[in-house]
Design a protein around this nucleic acid. Structure first.
Length: 465
RNA sequence: GGCGGCGUAGCCAAGUGGCCUAAGGCGACGGUUUGCAAAACCGUUAUUCGGCGGUUCGAAUCCGCCCGCCGCCUCCA
């Protein structure tokens, strides 16, 4: 597939450098609370990228870290009166649960930052040895950005401006830093009283790693000095990814990530999500409003990844309707093809004949155009049962759904309780006796119980309101 | 101040030089169906792409200016 590389700003064909497995690293969540739908835009799009590669027949190795030691996790675990590990474990489990609901494939490796301290310390040692880092009097270690000429390339920031503190926020925060240059960043943070029990030994004294370091150390361990792709939300470009590049390129001889994939921010009601605007939603919040994770995922893939996506409840409603339409069309196509259920994900990887849905897969392979692919999905459905073989079309449809990671709603997700079924049966009898008044009354009663009765050609169907 | 992006129908959103009198979804409206509804199904819904100029045989697509919106510049997916 072809994909835009954020570093070089070129659209290039993605090929594994080793000719076998496409290795990519994604910056994972900081586990100090539930992830919100903005976080999930990145994780879902990374998942779609992986799925498109795999459905296209490529092997992948997906590494995504868990940030379980940093300012926020330490601060919030103490506020909660819990040991750091217990605190982060609870939120890691919640993250996994949300990912499962969103139908995200688990990464092949999901390393924890706190479990990789030796690797991080080793990288700092290498950086000091090569003259790219220095220890300060208090036992912290900093990276010297003046030692890396390419610093600022990814974010397109001028290194001189950074070094001279010319950018907006640096002027305000200048006094907070005790280091040689204002923009040098911390690799190892000396132990402070407010860290409580959360400190570890190092050659520079007790302390903890800076948060940029973990991704460099763990990508090196699991993917090597040079690997195919690195991804994270656009806000991580600077400083996080810029710092990672500096660390990894200076500590090792490899090229680090060969390409970069940065999904753009999610907006809610036209504005960046924030607690103060009360537009920050978790999956749980959406579920309480009656929307499923599958519907959320549909919205998250409904726009191109390089465009800001405006998330609204109208779009969630549209997603619900669209998924229902897809599900009905799939059942019709399955009948025409004489198929039941869904083919396994594995059986769809490497599929060659997408039938009438070929244009949808072309769109996905063209810079991950998920919006175009969804459009082509519906275009294909108009002719899927009539044109060509229903069998290949049915498999092609499922391959596109698998690539997007969409789950279609089943016919009876929730079973109606016996009392609702009893009312529905009574209404059916009344209808057959043409007692319309009684039938309408029973319909109202069912509605009060929380069920809507839908009359079919033969019989009826109950759905929750 | 520096960097990046966006503006396409009521809403969401593809398309980035000719197949575009602009895909698709939602909504709305009309019809079929129905005891009536709901659901479902079928159809209609932008001669036009923020504004004004320019380049071109040809522009939503390229260039210039203007207007409006958003993001990043060391907490951030």
């Amino acid at each position: 597939m072809r994909l835009f590389d954020t570093l070089t700003r070129e659209t290039r064909e993605l090929q594994p450098a080793d000719g076998k497995t496409f290795g990519f690293y994604c910056c994972g969540p900081t586990v100090y609370g539930p992830a919100h739908i903005g976080n999930f835009r990145s994780f879902v799009l990374q998942d779609v990228l992986r799925r498109v590669l795999e459905v296209g027949g490529m092997r992948t190795k997906h590494v995504r870290n868990i940030t379980d030691v940093d300012d926020k996790t330490i601060c919030d675990s103490q506020a909660a009166g819990m040991p750091l590990t217990n605190f982060t474990t609870q939120w890691t489990e919640r993250f996994h649960e949300d990912c499962r609901k969103l139908n995200c494939l688990p990464p092949h490796v999901e390393p924890s930052a706190v479990a990789h301290l030796p690797e991080q310390i080793a990288m700092i040692e290498a950086l000091i040895e090569k003259g790219h880092a220095y220890a300060s009097d208090d036992g912290s270690v900093y990276f010297r950005i003046s030692s890396f000429s390419e610093y600022g390339r990814l974010a397109r920031l001028d290194r001189q401006d950074l070094e001279l503190g010319r950018t907006q926020n640096q002027r305000a925060n200048a006094d907070e830093y005790e280091k040689d240059s204002i923009c040098d960043f911390v690799l190892w943070k000396a132990r402070r009283r407010e860290d409580g029990e959360n400190f570890w030994p190092s050659p520079w004294g007790e302390g903890r790693p800076g948060w940029h370091l973990e991704c460099s150390a763990m990508s090196l361990k699991y993917l090597g000095e040079t690997f195919d792709m690195h991804s994270g939300g656009e806000d991580l470009k600077f400083p996080h990814h810029e710092n990672e590049i500096a660390q990894s390129r200076c500590a090792c001889d490899g090229q680090f990530a060969l390409s970069w994939f940065h999904p753009t921010f999610l907006l809610v009601d036209g504005a960046k999500m924030s607690k103060s605007l009360k537009n920050l939603y978790t999956l749980d919040d959406l579920e309480k409003k009656g929307f499923t994770a599958a519907e959320c995922r549909y919205v998250l893939v409904s726009a191109h990844y390089r465009k800001q996506l405006n998330f609204t409840f109208d779009s969630l409603h549209a997603a619900k309707e669209a998924l229902g339409k897809l599900a009905r069309a799939e059942r019709e196509l399955a009948r025409a093809a004489g198929q039941e259920g869904a083919p396994s994900y594995k059986s769809l990887c490497g599929l060659e004949d997408f039938g009438v849905f070929a244009p949808a897969f072309v769109a996905l392979n063209d810079d991950l155009n998920t919006a175009e692919a969804l459009g082509q999905l519906f275009v294909g459905l108009r002719t899927a049962t009539s044109e060509g073989g229903a069998g290949p079309n049915w498999r092609g449809l499922h391959a596109i759904l698998a690539a997007l990671g969409l789950i279609l709603p089943g016919v009876a997700v929730v079973k109606a309780p016996p009392e609702a079924v009893a009312l529905a049966e009574k209404r059916q009898e009344a209808r057959e006796g043409k007692d319309w008044a009684a039938a309408d009354r029973l319909r109202d009663e069912l509605k009060e119980l929380g069920w809507v009765v839908k009359d079919l050609r033969e019989g009826y169907e109950l759905e929750p309101v």
